[in-house]
């Protein structure tokens, strides 16, 4: 079988544990989003009512310190950007509105003040805010890290105690945990948006990340680096347990993982069907059949 076909075969799954599945049989993290929103009207209503920022993969709905710091940073930057955009556009439109006026201010001063000083000052401040305390996650190697390995298109997690899970990551809530990430095949990306930023899983290289979930719960993760045709379905979930339950949960999960291998199934090429349908329609219309 050539590789393309192999990839196709393994293509769009219905069986990879994706969020659709757990939307059905598990409550969402705070039960606010009624999943799946069956009708489109429902989706609109949900989006408007519950605020546009929540969501199982939303970076604006943080559930850990790293993600919250970044969310705050975003709101601050958004405010600043808005003011600057308003200033520039306001000036440009004002120039248009008052075109007849004579103005004799010094060009040099404007360029020095606004062209040089203003961006330098703003950006320095921004740099400071972003790099000061703790913004760079400590990404150094860690003794008892969980080893995460990416594959096309699933994850395996190996724990310091020898346990292993597939596509479910068990972590203790309220404590930092360390993950050592690598890939068996192509580049993927490890990303639990509600807990913090992403880091790539690169073959031949081990990357480190430390994250923390404030509360017990289920946090969805998605692959962010394009890794072939299963990319859209490459999800996993991080389950944060109360520290006292952690060990037991891990043992139970390992037994389950052994029984469950990811199954990828072939699905019809939908566009081919569409084209065929249109072709038939056209032939009918022309009276050829």
């Amino acid at each position: 079988m050539n590789g393309m076909a192999r990839q196709r075969d393994a293509g769009a799954d219905t069986d990879i544990p994706g969020f659709v599945e757990f939307c059905h049989d598990l409550p969402t993290h705070r039960g606010r989003m009624s999943c799946p929103a069956k009708s489109f009207a429902g989706a609109i209503a949900a989006t408007l009512l519950l605020g546009a920022c929540s969501g199982e993969l939303s970076t604006l709905d943080p559930a850990g310190p790293a993600a919250s710091r970044i969310a705050t940073l975003w709101w601050v930057m958004l405010g600043g950007a808005f003011v600057i955009l308003l200033g520039v556009m306001g000036t440009a439109i004002y120039a248009l509105r008052s075109a007849a006026k004579e103005r004799n201010f010094s060009t040099r001063k404007v360029l020095i003040g606004w062209g040089l000083a203003f961006p330098i000052a703003t950006l320095l401040a921004l740099m400071a805010v972003s790099f000061l305390p703790g913004e760079l996650l400590p990404r150094s190697p860690e003794e008892n890290a969980i080893r995460a390995q990416a594959h096309q298109w699933f994850w395996t997690f190996d724990y310091p105690g020898g346990e292993r899970t597939i596509d479910v990551l068990h972590v203790p809530a309220g404590e930092e945990f360390a993950i050592a990430i690598t890939s068996e095949d192509v580049i993927h990306s490890f990303w639990i948006p509600r807990l913090g930023g992403k880091i790539d899983a690169v073959p031949g290289k081990v990357n480190h990340i430390r994250l923390k979930a404030d509360r017990p719960g289920r946090y969805l993760a998605t692959c962010a680096e394009y890794c072939g045709i299963g990319h859209a379905h490459m999800r996993f979930e991080a389950l944060a347990h109360r520290p006292e339950d952690y060990a037991a949960a891990l043992t139970a999960a390992t037994d389950r993982a052994a029984a469950r291998a990811p199954v990828l199934e072939q699905r019809d090429a939908p566009a081919a069907l569409v084209i065929e349908e249109w072709g038939d329609y056209l032939l009918d219309w022309l009276g050829i059949t």
């Binding site: 969020f19 799946p36 929103a37 199982e56 939303s58 975003w74 948006p193 394009y226």
Partner: peptide, 23 residues
Amino acid sequence: HLTGLLGMPRRVYTYAEGLGWEL
């Protein structure tokens, strides 16, 4: 921009409902 902040990766050929990405 919002779609991205809600966690939608680029280069995905489809997505499921319920993540706030539909609208």
